[in-house]
Design a protein around this nucleic acid. Structure first.
Length: 263
DNA sequence: ATGGTGGCCCGGCCA
């Protein structure tokens, strides 16, 4: 089973790239972030034509998340329950597998804009709500994978120039603590389960030729529950779409799980 | 030290 995440920064603009990528990398589920389109503009037919189904939570102009999958998405949940928020940042769904149901979550965590700003406070409140909800979700669904744009580089090795970024939004200590509080529920950063190239990043600013200089951050993550992590045999960042014409500023992250056959 | 680019929708927000 292959699971992937990609912040595509407008599905309208990036749809051809997403379809091309899916056909070259026929993953079981692809979590998308920053659709930037309302629900009635989601291009479902384009996905069904290539053998996928989808569930989504869209909104006009900003945010928006989806799960594109090869099998039916069950028990769909939009947003964090009991967290009053009109921004569409969460969609969760259940996929059947040989080892039982697997809960898949596509997450677009707030950016935070600048340390100390209103948006930064919202980011920390949002992370606390995510943690509280995931705690129960992990009890209901022990086999859980939450993939997305976390807008947090967990460690200095995830930052191209840690000295330049120290204390900044995306790397500040409260943000890293919020991210670690999620991991402490019993989730593992799949990418760091394996040996990886140095200076591995998933996002590069559009400005100042950041991709050419590999001036990036690793802020897109695949988190696996304890019941899933031992099935994971690889987790890789696919940098190639970042070199496309009209690229997203993010690139896909792909985790491969080898599940035993049902007995 | 500032502003650089890109997507939204068409001046300014958000990333």
């Amino acid at each position: 089973m292959k699971l992937a995440t990609w912040n595509i920064n407008s599905l309208k603009v990036r749809l051809p790239q997403v379809l091309d990528w899916l056909q070259a990398h026929p993953v079981d589920a692809l979590c998308l972030q920053e659709l930037k389109l309302p629900d009635d503009k989601f291009p479902l037919e384009a996905f069904t034509e290539i053998g996928y189904t989808a569930q989504w939570a869209g909104q006009k102009t900003y945010n928006g998340v989806a799960i594109v999958a090869r099998q039916e998405c069950l028990e769909v949940q939009r947003n964090i329950p009991d967290f009053d928020d009109h921004q569409q940042r969460i969609i969760a769904s259940t996929l059947a597998s040989p080892i039982g149901d697997i809960r898949i979550i596509s997450a677009y965590c707030p950016n935070g804009q600048a340390v100390g700003s209103d948006k930064y406070e919202y980011k920390l409140r949002w992370y606390a709500a995510l943690r509280d909800w995931l705690q129960g979700e992990l009890q209901r669904y022990p086999r859980l994978a939450i993939l997305g744009d976390y807008n947090v580089a967990p460690k200095d090795e995830d930052v191209h120039d840690p000295a330049k970024w120290v204390g900044d939004v995306l790397v500040s200590e409260p943000e890293r603590a919020a991210f670690n509080a999620v991991l402490d529920l019993g989730l593992t950063d799949a990418f760091r389960q394996f040996e990886q190239p140095e200076k591995s990043f998933s996002w590069w600013d559009y400005r100042r030729m950041a991709f050419r200089r590999n001036a990036g951050l690793r802020i897109d993550h695949v988190l696996l529950s304890d019941a899933l992590r031992d099935y994971c045999v690889s987790c890789v960042i696919d940098k190639t779409p970042r070199a496309n014409e009209q690229p997203s500023d993010h690139t896909p992250v792909v985790a491969t799980l080898v599940l035993p056959q049902a007995s």
